[in-house]
Design a protein around this nucleic acid. Sequence first.
RNA 1: GGUGCGUUAGCAAAUCGGUUAUGCCCUGGAUUGCAAAUCCAGUUAGCCCAGUUCGACUCUGGGACGCACCUCCA
Length: 465
Amino acid sequence: MLKIYNTLARDKQQFVPIEPDTVRMYVCGMTVYDYCHLGHARVMVVFDMVYRWFKASGYNVTYVRNITDIDDKIIRRAAENNESIHTLTQKFIDAMHEDADALGVQRPDHEPRATQFVPEMLQMIAKLEANGLAYQAADGDVNFAVRKFDGYGKLSGKSLEDLRAGERVEVASDKHDPLDFVLWKHARETEAEEVKWDSKWGKGRPGWHIECSAMGSKLLGDHFDIHGGGADLQFPHHENEIAQSEGAHQCQYVNYWMHNGFVRLDNEKMSKSLGNFFTIREVLKQYDPEVVRFFILRAHYRSPLNYSDAHLDDTKKALDRLYTALKGVSTEKGEGGRVKGVDWNEPYALRFKAAMDDDFNTPEALAVLFDLANEVNRSQSAESALQLKALGAVLGLLQREPTEFLQGGSVAQGSDDALIAAQIVARNEAKQAKNYAEADRIRKALLADGIVLEDSAAGTNWRRV
RNA sequence: GGUGCGUUAGCAAAUCGGUUAUGCCCUGGAUUGCAAAUCCAGUUAGCCCAGUUCGACUCUGGGACGCACCUCCA
């Protein structure tokens, strides 16, 4: 029985889908004006894990992760680069896909781009206006009237009074209420035609919040199961989505709200505005992408995750242990020669499932994998090894050839394979001649290059540190 | 200022009112020419104070510290 921590309820709740055996989930994706950083990597990996677990649990899942390809930052960046919005966003969408692919993140079923759903957004704004929840201000912007929507603040646990007391920003005077937010931004003279759409309120472009509401209901319906995103989107973005969608459709918007924790650097949230971030591609120059994925899944998705080289090094060693267990045990085929999936009746799998069903407790699920690896090491059982690999697959891990991972695991530098092989031959000749000084010299020299030799009955293997 | 979350061994990180988390590091043993890998055994916990309880890391109250949101942000 799957339980999910629902931000809306501030509690773990049993997951009951709206339609039996079906999950419809929406996750706020990226605004594509720059390369993705590790914070983005965490959202992608976490919800990829969620997506995979629902599928492994037998649900039909429709997963939508949007792309914001129109907003102030994009417009500014395009102007700086002297390129079109489309050129800029396409470049970073491509880069995002490269990064996601490297991290083993499966493509969502839909990746809607905001610019392709402007008519739906306009329809929704019209509904809100008809329902008395939106108004056009003197400056031409169409705003949402926060005061008119009962229950504003139910997701973030904030009252309008609290919010008002904490106001830190000068408010545009044309709003009826300082907390009203924009649905439709009127076009500015200086802006390119590319960022202007016609509407009954005049030329303009959509506000950020309406994008997700419109794309969500278009692709998943007015009421769907799960909505996810980073914890920083809880307020105001998700709060505003609820107000818009429920205000327009007059029904519950989302049943379960899921928010992942931040990636931190030196105990501080990694973010664009603080400038303390590493892009995914920077990190992948130094670490194997599977190590990065494993690093993210080693923490519970709601916990903070501190990034440091020491932690990544630690993670690499941990993953080495799992791949080492798989090495040398045939995992190609199960009994009777068929390719085997998870045997869900087996004790380790039951523990794994219990962990995952408990609000996607991946650290606990991974602990089960380490216990299973220990079992594989002891028994050298192909069945156990297959089970380990199959459970790894559920998390998008352990699917490579162990040797390929262990020998390329940290991003390759120095010695090439042929050279290493030659050194091993030379060392084994020295060993046969009982010239251990020479054998040890060769081993030490390789170690200096990050190559560890392992002698076994079957011969000498090597791996990278 | 308001609101929310967190504080577990050297580091990272889970579970749980009473029974070995797990990974890395460390110690001893087995194995090895010596190592590495592996196996076995072991060391190191629960921010502070008070309460509830036969028993609390786990529940309650108070305090300290940290982080986040209240502005664009994954």
